[in-house]
Every structure is written in C-alpha cells, then in structure tokens.
C-alpha cells in the first residue's frame, strides 16, 4: 500500500504499520499486542473511553492515555507495559471486581468472560482482598425486559450493549439509567405498548456483553437447570 494510507509506529519496540485513522488500541490488537479493554468496539467514532483499562504511554505526551481514543500517527512511540500503566490497570480492574458478585462458576460467561481474560493477563485474582466488597444496591436479577435478564452485579457498565443496540436498531431499546455508583442498564418501557416495540430480539446486546450480565431468559433458565442437575448429580 502507498505511504499516505499507511502509518508506521513503534509499540513496545515493535514496528507496526496500520491504515491511517486507525485507533491505537485496534492497531495493537490487530498486530498481536494485547491491551486489556472493555468499552471499545470496532467502528466507534468517539469511543466512550470509560473503562480506563486500555491505558498506554506515548512518548512526548503527558501521562497514561486511553489507547482506544488515540489515532495512530507516523513515528508514534508507544509503551503498553510501563509500571504506571500496569498499576493503573490493576487498580481499575480491582475496582471493577470489588462490585462484582464473583460467582464465576454459576455464570453463563464462565471461561469466555473478558474479565477472566484480563485477570489472567494482569495476574490478578477475580476477588479483591485489598478493597472491600461493595455490591450495588440493586436486585441480583432484573427482569424488566420480556425475554432478556440483566444482572447488575456482573455488569461492568462498559456500555457495549447500549452502543450495539443503537447501531443495530435506529431506535435503541436499552440505555443507561441513574447516575454514579448506581448507574445501571435499563430496558424501561420495553413492556409498554408502543414504546416496547423497539426491541427486535436481535440478541445483539446479549452477544456483545463481555461478562455475561445480559442473557436470554430461556437460555439462562436452561443453563441454571442444567447446573442444578449437575450439582445434585
């Protein structure tokens, strides 16, 4: 490819070439350099930059920066493994699990959960001892939607589901609600006539959720039954 469409940069000493305009996080992931991330999805113009896991340091720029929100530039020199980056990633991770229910074996996402992957990468336990466990002040299971089940204590509020729904459906059927520590995902109105027509049961949100906080009710029931059977057996 010609020079104007490709950009060459150095990540952890490795030279990589990617199309101009690519986000740094994607550039790294595409080239086999793993950076933990939760909230970024391919194709986002303005990534939310909210999970704060994808931090890197770029020479000549102040402080760790979220790689999902940096666009690659020629000659960029990037470090993904500095002490400060790791420290912050570990804290962010610890904060996320401090609100989590930690019941991996009872979870449908067990073994393919993004948090488990990140835990392995950062050498972190899935339960923090350093911080107190602060569960969200919400029911364990919320069945607001006629066929989707939401578990707030698993949710990491990455917002992938909100984004994907807005992409798949012109009118999206779920959104954030409340604020701060009590922020949650809401399907408000999904049962109401007229208002509830927005959900097309495309299960995009269920599939995109990195942690298994959203599940189809039927599938979850079957999974739990199965689990019950296994336990009693």
């Amino acid at each position: 490819m010609s020079k104007d469409v490709m950009v060459t940069l150095t990540v952890d000493g490795l030279e990589i070439s990617v199309p101009r305009g690519t986000k740094l996080l994607k550039a790294c992931l595409d080239n086999g350099i793993y950076i933990p991330s939760l909230c970024y999805l391919d194709g986002m113009d303005h990534p939310p930059a909210s999970c704060r896991l994808c931090l890197v340091e770029i020479e000549g720029r102040p402080g760790p920066l979220p790689s999902c929100s940096q666009t690659v530039e020629d000659g960029m020199v990037v470090h993904t493994e500095t002490d400060e980056v790791r420290l912050l990633q570990k804290t962010a991770f610890r904060l996320l699990v401090s609100t989590n229910d930690g019941k991996c074996r009872l979870c449908m996402a067990n073994k393919h959960c993004e948090m488990q992957k990140i835990a392995k990468f950062l050498h972190m336990p899935l339960r923090t001892k350093k911080l107190r466990h602060i569960p969200k002040d919400m029911p364990e299971v919320i069945e607001e939607h006629p066929c989707i089940v939401y578990e707030p204590n698993k949710c990491v509020l990455c917002g992938r589901c909100v984004y994907i729904c807005s992409q798949q459906n012109y009118d999206f059927a779920l959104d954030f609600a409340k604020r701060g520590f009590n922020t949650t995902i809401s399907f408000f109105g999904s049962r109401e006539e007229g208002v509830g027509d927005y959900c097309r049961n495309c299960r995009a949100c269920v599939d995109i959720c990195p942690v298994g906080a959203l599940n189809l009710k039927d599938e979850r029931d079957a999974f739990l039954q199965n689990l019950q059977a296994k336990i009693s057996a």
Partner: peptide, 16 residues
Amino acid sequence: AHFGIPGAKVFGVATF
C-alpha cells in the same frame, strides 16, 4: 412517544 425516541432513553435522562 412524542419525540419518537425509546422510553429507556427518556428514563435514562430523567434519572440522571
């Protein structure tokens, strides 16, 4: 319904 936007969005704004 008035704005032609989902209820979840209005709920999200109102609770924020």
